[in-house]
Design a protein around this nucleic acid. Sequence first.
DNA 1: TATGAATGAGGCTTCATTCAT
DNA 2: CATGAATGAAGCCTCATTCAT
Lengths: 208, 208, 208, 208
Amino acid sequence: MGVTERRLREKESRIESIKKSAARLFARKGFSNVSMAEIAEAAEVSKGTLYIYFKSKEELYFSLIEPVLVNHHKLIARMVSDDSEPADESLRKFFDYFADSYPLDPQAHQPYMYYRAEEVQPLFSEERHDYLKTLMAKNVETIEAVILRGIEQGIFKSVNPRAVSSILWSLVTGVLRWEENRKFARSGDFLESTLQTAMNLILDGLKM
Amino acid sequence: MGVTERRLREKESRIESIKKSAARLFARKGFSNVSMAEIAEAAEVSKGTLYIYFKSKEELYFSLIEPVLVNHHKLIARMVSDDSEPADESLRKFFDYFADSYPLDPQAHQPYMYYRAEEVQPLFSEERHDYLKTLMAKNVETIEAVILRGIEQGIFKSVNPRAVSSILWSLVTGVLRWEENRKFARSGDFLESTLQTAMNLILDGLKM
Amino acid sequence: MGVTERRLREKESRIESIKKSAARLFARKGFSNVSMAEIAEAAEVSKGTLYIYFKSKEELYFSLIEPVLVNHHKLIARMVSDDSEPADESLRKFFDYFADSYPLDPQAHQPYMYYRAEEVQPLFSEERHDYLKTLMAKNVETIEAVILRGIEQGIFKSVNPRAVSSILWSLVTGVLRWEENRKFARSGDFLESTLQTAMNLILDGLKM
Amino acid sequence: MGVTERRLREKESRIESIKKSAARLFARKGFSNVSMAEIAEAAEVSKGTLYIYFKSKEELYFSLIEPVLVNHHKLIARMVSDDSEPADESLRKFFDYFADSYPLDPQAHQPYMYYRAEEVQPLFSEERHDYLKTLMAKNVETIEAVILRGIEQGIFKSVNPRAVSSILWSLVTGVLRWEENRKFARSGDFLESTLQTAMNLILDGLKM
DNA sequence: TATGAATGAGGCTTCATTCAT
DNA sequence: CATGAATGAAGCCTCATTCAT
């Protein structure tokens, strides 16, 4: 029978529905401003059902954050991993990644955009928090390596690679947040062009 | 009598104490994760006293946000208001303002750093929310004017001034958040040097 | 077919497994502190299965209590039913019964040890509760008859048989509980010797 | 002003009201079968008020149990502390204490009557549970000392003092429970006479 | 018959706010 | 004005029970 399979599919679709609803709500209002009841209603399941799949509100939140951080890291790391590629090309890909993927799935980017160590820390165990920090640190290191490569390739000025990596991440997350706020305020959507402009400025500034 | 005066002074110091405590707590943990009891204790007043001076938790929050936004706007507007000044000088002042004033009073900058339209909106009346939006929009326009001036002065490339203004604000708030998280994670304090580097990159990128 | 038989056997073993698991858990943690999920897991069946065989949690509990009460009554009644036997012999059997059978199946004795009218009453219908009361009353009457016999046989002093019967039951259940707590506190197992001593004291006290 | 004092009195009376309601309910139905809402209603306060005075349901329970155990120990220890007193007199006081004090404040005796190590343990921290065990152990030791004294005084047979102490406690708590159940079942109140009879039997059994 | 996902009532607890003093 | 005890709505979570397969 395909019964078991169908069951499995239904179960997974329910989990997906919960995750999607939760992600949207958390992204829109922040962890503390979303109630489990709200999530349940949005996902069209009962409150109890949430707890079948997620041990707690924190667990649900974590299950949304973690794979996104892992995935982004993977994607970005792969994207910029070709050591023979000119570093400016790599950075361009980095920016394009956000310009392209953000509109497709804005919630997937929320963890970066709204990550706030002091708010998140009390939610998770020390271990988990360390894990999240490590994940985010890796991302900075990835871009740091690109900057370093650019300097070695003679394309970039002699800058502090770690600082510039921080700046690039700050800039990207800052712009995503900014444009999100702007969109919410109904004043148009300029994400792509803003990111383009930002990248051009930075690259021009970085190049020798 | 000096009694009335003393009373007045005591009252104002009480209000200041409340505001200071509340600002620190909101900044540290976010609006929803702070209780009125916590604020009262930190300010060394009773819970009831909070409600003498502030109609509600939202009101208290607003009373913290609003003057900061107004003040920042004033300071920044004044700082860059000399139309004869080279635009790159003005931007340098803009960056320096954050590098200098943030360490002195980090909380004062929280409203920008953590402003999140979707989270804040349900707290306030439409009117108030519009007011906040206007305040923030003015700041963007101020920097936009500087960029425009730079172009007219022949110092800057022909960029989209509105986009670059957004970028500068995104960059500054992004870096502030970034360094705040980093500091919280006990990995050192690089705010000033990071902001310096960021400004140099951007200015180099902007200049013809 | 032997199929039907096998089915029947499997079914009965399933029921036994449920009862056994439930008895152990109820005995260990008390009715309210045991969940149906826990019982199902311990019995290695699904939650739904519990409801095939027992209409409700209360029903399951009743199905454990009732036969034990009936059975104890039967055993004890038979044990002391020989009217020609010296009453002190009969009481000795009564005590020995607990000293011998408790260690073999402690859970079977829980209904007595922890019976608490006020807690049990809201669980059951009036009718059922009355039934349980009657069962327990019969036990008291059985021992009461032994005391009476002892007086008539000229072995026992002229005491109030009902009161002494209550005392004997109180003593036995009291000691069982006491030693259970002590065992749980890991301070050794003195059930048998304690019961022996108790019986000797009481018999010495009863005898003329 | 007496205002502060009256306030204090009102506050304490409220706490007393809560404790009294809680004690009655816990005694009647057991810890797990009582809800905080029930207690609040019985005490005629709001649910929130309970948490002003007691950090949690467990804490409230503990606040009822602990002083009773301490107090009983004190009373009983004092009662039997005169080493020159004949041991049978001391035991008589011990029994009388329960016969007299139980009807006056039955709830005060609940902790003994219904103490169940396995149910109570998960409620409390290890430390607290150890503390409770120690308190109860002290009581056994107190009576143990009386038995020993009786033997030394040549009044009692040469029995195992620890075992007999356990038996006396088991007997008393057993009888209290028994009569409580009987009372609840509306079949009369024989506590005093039952305890009297029990004591006479035991003393007769103990004496040489 | 057996399963286990789903339900929703109800339990414990927090907290913004009120109000008598 | 200042206090802090009191309130009760609302949040997180558990669990007995049902039901489609």
